[in-house]
């Protein structure tokens, strides 16, 4: 325990922000930055991809299906390498490890998010879609106003798991020299030589705290929405509250 504190005292800044401001941003902050950006980008891309999978137009659903099947069939490490070596060839100049890792995460995770979203949509009763269409709303309007709000809420636990796994997958940035937390920790461990257990205990704890915070936030959101939907209003009279599962274990 004491040794852990010593390590934190001596190398805390390196673990927190890498070489910054003398070098690129690294450590925990780099992990957070890449994760937040990846989540913010992978989520909308994944939702659009999931919708494309279900689109009534074949020119849209086929490429989306290819994207999903291809990426689910390849290990993430392969995608990292392919992006690392191919993107510079395609665009003619080098891109940073950070950008490479971000692209990889978005491309890879969006395929999984797409399948979660698709499952959520297909689990809804067909009547929801029909009722909306019967009211004169078009396909897109129906998705936006009726289908997605329900599907995304219902799939929140799986979606959060996927977002958490984005954070954890960012560790693979290590192999292409993205100076994120794992990379920084390895630097520290190599310096200290004899204390890998302590160093990586710090790393594990850091990841746990970051991932748990996201889960906690998501659970709060889920409870909030569920409460809103089952809230008994004064004028609503007496009726049994609907069964709503608020305690979710989505970690």
């Amino acid at each position: 325990m004491f040794e852990i504190l010593t390590i934190l005292h001596d190398n805390g800044l390196l673990l927190l922000m890498g070489q910054y401001p003398n070098g690129p941003l690294g450590g925990v902050l780099c992990t957070l930055l890449i994760s937040v950006l990846a989540v913010l980008m992978a989520f909308p891309v994944g939702v659009l991809l999931g919708l494309a999978r279900l689109a009534p137009w074949r020119w849209l659903s086929w490429p989306a299906a290819c994207w999903v099947y291809l990426l689910r069939g390849i290990p993430l490490m392969m995608v990292v390498f392919w992006t690392y070596f191919c993107v510079p060839l395609l665009i003619g100049h080098n891109i940073s490890g950070f950008a490479t890792m971000l692209c990889t995460l978005v491309i890879y995770e969006s395929a999984y998010i797409a399948e979660i979203v698709r499952g959520g949509i297909q689990a809804l009763p067909q009547g929801q879609y029909e009722a909306s269409r019967a009211l004169g709303m078009g396909h897109i309007k129906t998705l936006r106003l009726v289908i997605l709000p329900q599907a995304l809420f219902n799939t929140l636990p799986s979606l959060v798991s996927q977002l958490v796994s984005i954070i954890k997958d960012s560790t693979l940035g290590y192999v292409i020299n993205v100076p994120e937390l794992t990379y920084a920790a390895n630097q520290v461990s190599n310096q200290l030589l004899t204390k890998p257990f302590q160093v990586f205990a710090i790393v594990a704890l850091s990841y746990y705290i970051i991932c748990y915070s996201l889960t906690w936030l998501a659970n709060r959101l889920e409870t909030h929405i569920a409460n809103k939907r089952s809230h008994e209003r004064p004028e609503a009279g007496k009726f049994a509250a609907p069964l709503v599962l608020t305690k979710t274990q989505s970690q």
Binding site: Q128, A131, R133, A134, L135, G136, P149
Partner: peptide, 19 residues
């Protein structure tokens, strides 16, 4: 869509939007 706005439809299973 325009035509459907002129035809009210009531389903067996109500199909209200629960959200």
């Amino acid at each position: 869509n325009q035509l459907r706005t002129r035809i009210g439809f009531v389903f067996q299973n109500f199909n209200l939007f629960p959200h």
